[in-house]
Each structure stands twice: as C-alpha cells, then as structure tokens.
C-alpha cells in the first residue's frame, strides 16, 4: 500500500486524529454512562437498597427457629448478615448482563464496538458501575446487623474487608451474566439462566446453614460452590476475626474465577461483532 506515504495528503486525510484516552479514560467513559443510566431508574436504586432488609427479615424469621441451634453461638442474625451481603452481590451480579442486552437493542452496543475504546475498558466500566450498586446495600446490611446486635467483630476495617470479599465474589458472576447477555442478546434468556444458576449457588452453600448440617452430597457440592468461599470469608471477618486460613484461600479461588470469566467476557466482547461469522 502506498496510500500513507504522501505527507501532504496526510493532512487532508485526517483533519483531526483523535488521541487515545488510555484504558483508564475508556473505563471512566463507560462507568459514567452506566452510572448515569442507573440514576435515571430510581426505582431500581430504591429496590436495591430495600432488598437486603427484606432478605434479613424473611430469612431470619423463616429459618431462624430451625437453624438457630445449628449455628455456632446460636445467633442466627449474626450468622445471616454476611450471607445476605453475598446474596445481594449475587443478585446484583445476575442482573448485570441485561445492561448489554439493552445496549444491543438500542444500538449502543455496536456504537461502542465501532469506537476505538478498549474492549477490556468497555467491560470493566460496566462491571465497576454494577459494583457500586453492591457497596451501598452492603453497608446498609452491616449497619442493620449492628443495630440488631450483630456487629462486625473486626470493626471498621472488617467492614471494608467484607465489602472487598463481596466485590471479589461478584465479578465472576457478573462476567457470567454479561457473557450470557452478549451471546443470547435476550433479557429473558439471561434472566432465566442466571436465576436458575442462582438458586443452587445460594442454597447448596454454607449461606444459610453450616456445612455439617447439610446432607452428604450437598456438602460435596457446597465445598466447590463459589458462594461458600464468599460466605465463609465474609463470615470469618464478621464473626471470628482475621482468620487468614479461611480468607486467603477464598479470595484466591474467587480471584481466579474472576480472571477466567472476566477474560472470557472480554473475549466474547471482542468477537461479538463478528459473531455472525462464527
């Protein structure tokens, strides 16, 4: 090709060459848009805030009498608070993929793909905006626990720690939900599949009852369930202190899952435009 070798044409050809924003700038661009979109749906925001309260009341009332004896210390609310933090993270992550489905429907998805923005940034900006939606409900939940006589034993640093666990826990499932959204292009399919996966993730884990209260086969499932890792780490920080023997392996497992599924999500975004060719 000799088309680029004539400098006098270069000026005519590109009246303005855009300068790259770098990946951080691109993440910011996407984060801003998704946050703006969330602010335009106040109902969703309010629901996200009320949700943990509903869960805490329901689960403590329904299971409290039965499971109360099975949990260490007998304080079921204290046992439940970290589980609901993880539950909120799980539910928020499940809904994450519908954002890209909406984008596919409005054409913004293609507009984003045809722009020079980094695909990793497109995904990260979206995920960061959903992560923000986990932070506030988590703080509300921990505050409620405090009021109900179940404080975080590790104090304020522990609150930050639990938040960190919830975020690390949420990313892999967000990635899963986003992959579903981009691949199927359907809110309905994404909703059905994430809901279906959500139930075993939640109940075949240590979220509501201790491991030894589960039947044998469920103990096996629970021991490989990412929710168990998230709940155990959050619960350790909440109830027993900085038990690194529980926290570190959990974060390693969840972090690895995040990297694998996050990588898959970016890969899917990268080839989304050529999906028709397969």
């Amino acid at each position: 090709m000799t088309t680029t070798t004539q400098p006098e044409n270069e000026l005519d050809q590109s009246p303005e060459k855009t300068t790259g924003n770098g990946i951080l700038g691109d993440i910011w661009t996407n984060l801003l848009r998704w946050n703006l979109k969330k602010l335009r749906e106040p109902f969703v925001l309010v629901f996200a805030l009320v949700e943990p309260l509903i869960f805490l009341v329901l689960f403590s009332q329904v299971f409290g009498q039965l499971a109360g004896q099975a949990v260490p210390g007998g304080d079921y609310v204290a046992y439940l608070v970290p589980a609901i933090v993880i539950l909120v993270a799980l539910i928020t992550a499940a809904g994450s993929g519908t954002g890209f489905v909406q984008d596919i429907e409005t054409g913004m998805f293609e507009k984003t793909l045809v722009s020079p923005m980094s695909r990793t940034a497109v995904f990260s900006g979206k995920v960061l905006s959903d992560i923000l939606l986990i932070v506030v409900p988590t703080l509300i939940m921990l505050g409620l626990g405090y009021v109900a006589g179940a404080p975080v034993t590790t104090g304020l640093l522990g609150v930050v720690g639990i938040l960190g666990v919830a975020l690390v826990f949420s990313v892999w499932f967000m990635a899963f939900s986003n992959i579903l959204g981009v691949v199927t292009g359907s809110t309905r399919v994404t909703g059905i599949v994430t809901n279906l996966v959500q139930l075993p993730l939640l109940f075949a884990s240590t979220a509501f009852v201790p491991m030894d209260a589960l039947p044998g086969w469920l103990q096996v499932v629970s021991s490989v369930n990412p929710t168990t890792y998230g709940v155990n780490a959050a619960r350790a920080i909440m109830l027993s202190g900085w038990d690194w023997g529980v926290i570190v392996p959990s974060l390693v497992v969840l972090g690895a899952l995040d990297i694998v599924l996050g990588g898959m999500a970016v890969y899917v975004l990268n080839r989304a435009s050529s999906a028709a060719v397969q």
């Binding site: 855009t18 300068t19 790259g20 924003n21 700038g25 691109d26 910011w28 661009t29 801003l32 848009r33 703006l36 979109k37 335009r40 749906e41 409005t106 054409g107 913004m108 293609e110 507009k111 984003t112 722009s115 020079p116 923005m117």
Partner: peptide, 25 residues
Amino acid sequence: AQETSIDPALTVREDLRFACRAYGV
C-alpha cells in the same frame, strides 16, 4: 448503523458527550 443507535436514557447532550469521550475529543 441502519438502526438508529442512541442511548434513550441519556439526554441529547449526554449522548453527545459520551461520544466525545469515546473518541477522545
């Protein structure tokens, strides 16, 4: 694109601002 592609949740100016950011204006 053939199908109109805008973000309906944003205002007209916000849509344009997003496009400016995306292209590094």
